[in-house]
Amino acid sequence: MTRTASIVGMIVNPNAGKDIRRLVTPATHTSDVTKVGIVRRAIVAAFESGASKVLLMPDNHRLAERASDRIKGDIEVLDMPLSGSRFDTIAAAHVFCQAQVGAVIALGGDGTSRDVAIGWPDAPLIAISTGTNNVFPSAIDGTSAGAAAAFVASGAVCLSVVARRSKKVVVKIDDRDKSLDDLALVDLAFINSMFVGARAVRDPHTVHAVISCVATPASTGLSSIAGRIHPVGRWETGGVFVRLGAGGRKVRVPLAPGSFTTMEIAEVRRLGEGEKISLSGKTVLAFDGERDLPVSAFGTVTAHIEATGPLLIDVEQTLVLAAQALMFDETARHISEGNHVY
């Protein structure tokens, strides 16, 4: 592996961790100050661990500028137009791909990682949770994330050793004269609702069906439905389809953090990799837990699960390998090109 530079890219979703669920559940509020602190720690740790450059997505909250203020090093906030929406993340991830970024750190929820995957399908990614029902990202401190990203970006720790290809739900929507392609990294849900509204899916009676590629009982949110009756791990192939309705098991589910409800399971079945499932009719699609796209009565949604998601970097494994290779010794602080050991 040869790289011209050891570039770490960072994306912070300014909107994550502040939605309506703070009002109806004890979900965590993630302030801008908290996000700035995480990114700041990640930048410092990245330079400490051999990054030659840090690229940051700009945002309407100026979190990138605040996080990088007065840190010495080659830091660049991308010069790109801002929409103030998820499309900023998609665009920044695409720019990172073009710029041959070696590792991306993304702060946000499942939706933020989803947007990274749309902008850069093969992104080498460390996903830090600052959202609500996060399944794809993890609670990782910026210090550890920044160090791991730098070790991977520099090639000091080999990406193929510490990263695994994640799964995604590949979605095709045909609705009258429109045809759209989309994806989810955790789950696609069909919601009986007229509106996107406040986005979060809170009413259990409106959930018609869920396709999950990761379903664990250790999560909260829509993926926890399947997670409590038919768990599917992050690294298992395929996923699970659940249809809600009368006549089946009644399961207690934390649809939001600290908030439990009973959901009645009409159908549950395993989905093999690539196995297609189609549902027609009026619905609102929720991608990774948030209502996002209304589909008309004439629409058909086809989805399948495949292992073509982002390359998810194992931060702990990366740092263990770095420690075993004495990379934290004073003499190893300036890790040079081609000095990777794994």
């Binding site: 909107n15 502040k18 939605d19 669920r21 703070r22 509106f195 996107v196 509204g197 406040a198």
Partner: peptide, 11 residues
């Protein structure tokens, strides 16, 4: 405290 889209009456 929560943020909502103030251009969306349903939200």
């Amino acid at each position: 405290g929560v943020i909502v889209d103030g251009m969306d009456v349903i939200a």
